[in-house]
Deep mutational scan, measured.
Amino acid sequence: KELVLVLYDYQEKSPREVTVKKGDILTLLNSTNKDAWKVEVDDRQGFIPAAYLKKL
């Protein structure tokens, strides 16, 4: 599985998104959309803007 590093805090703005903190390391589920990547956070799945993430 692929991991990503969170570069900036992000507060979810819709039910399809998830809230993350800078420095979190998350499982990347889908990065086919260049604008928003799907990740898993504490058994929740949701989207975060790709600009907030860096592949490890």
Rank of each mutant, 00 (worst) to 15 (best):
K1G: 10
K1N: 10
E2L: 13
L3D: 02
L3K: 11
L3G: 02
L3N: 04
L3Y: 14
L3I: 07
L3S: 06
V4F: 02
V4T: 01
V4Y: 05
V4P: 00
V4W: 04
V4R: 00
V4Q: 00
L5W: 05
L5I: 14
V6R: 00
V6W: 01
V6D: 01
V6I: 04
V6A: 07
V6L: 03
V6P: 02
V6G: 00
L7G: 00
Y8V: 10
Y8G: 07
Y8L: 10
Y8Q: 14
Y8R: 14
Y8S: 10
Y8C: 15
Y8N: 11
D9R: 01
D9H: 04
D9G: 04
D9N: 08
Y10S: 01
Y10H: 04
Y10M: 01
Y10E: 01
Y10V: 02
Y10G: 01
Q11H: 13
Q11C: 12
Q11A: 13
Q11F: 15
Q11W: 14
Q11E: 13
E12V: 09
E12Y: 06
E12Q: 14
E12L: 13
K13W: 06
K13G: 08
S14H: 12
S14V: 06
S14F: 10
S14G: 12
S14W: 09
S14N: 14
S14A: 09
P15Q: 09
P15W: 08
R16G: 15
R16C: 15
R16P: 06
R16S: 14
R16I: 13
R16K: 12
R16H: 14
E17L: 05
E17P: 08
E17H: 09
E17M: 06
V18D: 01
V18E: 01
V18T: 04
V18I: 15
V18C: 07
V18M: 13
T19P: 03
T19F: 05
T19L: 04
T19S: 14
T19C: 06
V20N: 00
V20C: 08
V20D: 00
V20G: 03
V20F: 06
V20Y: 08
K21Q: 08
K21T: 07
K21S: 09
K22C: 08
K22G: 05
K22W: 04
K22H: 06
K22S: 08
K22P: 02
K22Q: 11
K22N: 03
G23N: 06
G23Y: 03
G23Q: 03
G23W: 04
G23K: 01
G23P: 00
G23T: 03
G23S: 02
D24I: 05
D24K: 05
D24S: 10
D24M: 15
D24G: 04
I25L: 06
I25K: 04
I25M: 05
I25T: 04
I25V: 11
L26W: 04
L26C: 14
L26I: 13
T27K: 13
T27W: 12
T27P: 09
T27Y: 11
T27H: 10
T27R: 13
L28T: 01
L28F: 03
L28E: 01
L28D: 00
L28P: 00
L29K: 03
L29F: 03
L29W: 03
L29V: 11
L29M: 06
L29P: 00
L29S: 03
N30W: 06
N30Y: 06
N30G: 07
N30M: 08
N30L: 09
N30H: 07
N30F: 05
S31E: 11
S31Y: 07
S31R: 05
S31T: 09
S31D: 15
T32C: 14
T32L: 10
T32I: 09
T32D: 15
N33R: 12
N33M: 09
N33L: 09
N33H: 10
N33C: 13
N33E: 11
K34L: 11
K34E: 12
K34I: 11
K34P: 15
D35L: 13
D35R: 11
D35Y: 15
A36I: 15
A36D: 09
A36T: 12
A36Q: 14
A36K: 12
A36L: 15
W37A: 01
W37M: 02
W37C: 04
W37Q: 00
V39A: 02
V39R: 00
V39N: 00
V39W: 02
E40N: 05
E40D: 05
E40P: 01
E40I: 12
V41R: 08
V41G: 06
V41A: 09
V41E: 02
V41I: 13
V41W: 08
D42T: 07
D42A: 13
D42H: 12
D42I: 08
D42G: 15
D43H: 11
D43M: 09
D43W: 06
D43F: 10
D43S: 12
R44I: 08
R44W: 15
R44G: 07
R44S: 06
R44D: 03
R44T: 07
Q45F: 09
Q45I: 14
Q45L: 07
Q45D: 07
Q45V: 15
G46Q: 06
G46V: 15
G46T: 11
G46K: 05
F47D: 06
F47I: 06
F47C: 12
F47A: 03
F47G: 02
F47E: 07
F47K: 02
I48F: 02
I48G: 02
I48Y: 01
I48D: 04
P49I: 06
P49A: 04
P49V: 05
A50H: 05
A50P: 14
A50E: 05
A50M: 06
A51H: 14
A51L: 11
A51D: 14
Y52D: 05
Y52I: 15
Y52S: 07
Y52W: 07
Y52R: 05
Y52P: 03
Y52G: 08
Y52E: 04
L53P: 04
L53W: 00
L53M: 04
K54H: 12
K54T: 11
K54D: 08
K55H: 08
K55I: 14
K55E: 07
L56E: 03
L56N: 00
L56T: 05
L56C: 14
